[in-house]
Nucleic acid binder design. Structure first.
Length: 114
DNA sequence: AGTTTGACTGGAG
DNA sequence: CCTCCAGCCAAAC
C-alpha cells in the first residue's frame, strides 16, 4: 500500500475521500470495519480522523452502509444511537459493554479484489 | 496566519 | 472496563 510522508495536496484529499466511500460501500452485510483500517487501505494510515469526517460530512455517504464503520474498540459513533439498531438488524452482535463484538464481525479487506 | 475542532488511536492510570 | 491525555491532521474558525 502506498504511503505519502508529506501532507495531502487538495487533489490527494479528494482521491482519499473517493477511496474511502468506495471502500465503505464494499463492507459486507453483517460485518463492520474501523476508521483506521479504511484509512490504511486508502493509503494514508494516519488519517483515521479524516475517514470519520468524510463519512459525516460527505453528501453521498448517507446512501452507503456507513453504519458498518465503528472505531477500533467497536464503539458506535457518538450522537448516532440508531447506528446500533441498523447493525443489529443485520445480525451484528454487541457485547455487554455496548461495543460491537469485533472478533466476530470485523471485516478484513481483500487486497486486489479478493 | 494562529487556534480550535473532531464519526480516531494508543497508552497510562 | 472506564476516563483522561498526547499525538494526529485536514478543516473550519
Amino acid at each position: 500500500m502506498r504511503y505519502y510522508p508529506d501532507k495531502m495536496t487538495p487533489e490527494q484529499a479528494r482521491t482519499f475521500g473517493k477511496d474511502v466511500l468506495n471502500i465503505v460501500c464494499q463492507i459486507p452485510r453483517g460485518k463492520v470495519t474501523t476508521y483506521g483500517h479504511i484509512a490504511a487501505w486508502a493509503g494514508w494510515p494516519s488519517h483515521s480522523r479524516m475517514v470519520g469526517r468524510t463519512l459525516r460530512y460527505s453528501p453521498g455517504a448517507e446512501s452507503l452502509p456507513c453504519h458498518r464503520v465503528v472505531n477500533i474498540a467497536g464503539r458506535t459513533a457518538p450522537g448516532w444511537s440508531r447506528q446500533r439498531t441498523l447493525l443489529e438488524e443485520e445480525g451484528v452482535t454487541f457485547k455487554p459493554n455496548g461495543h460491537v463484538d469485533m472478533s466476530k464481525h470485523l471485516w478484513e479487506p481483500e487486497i486486489n479484489g479478493v
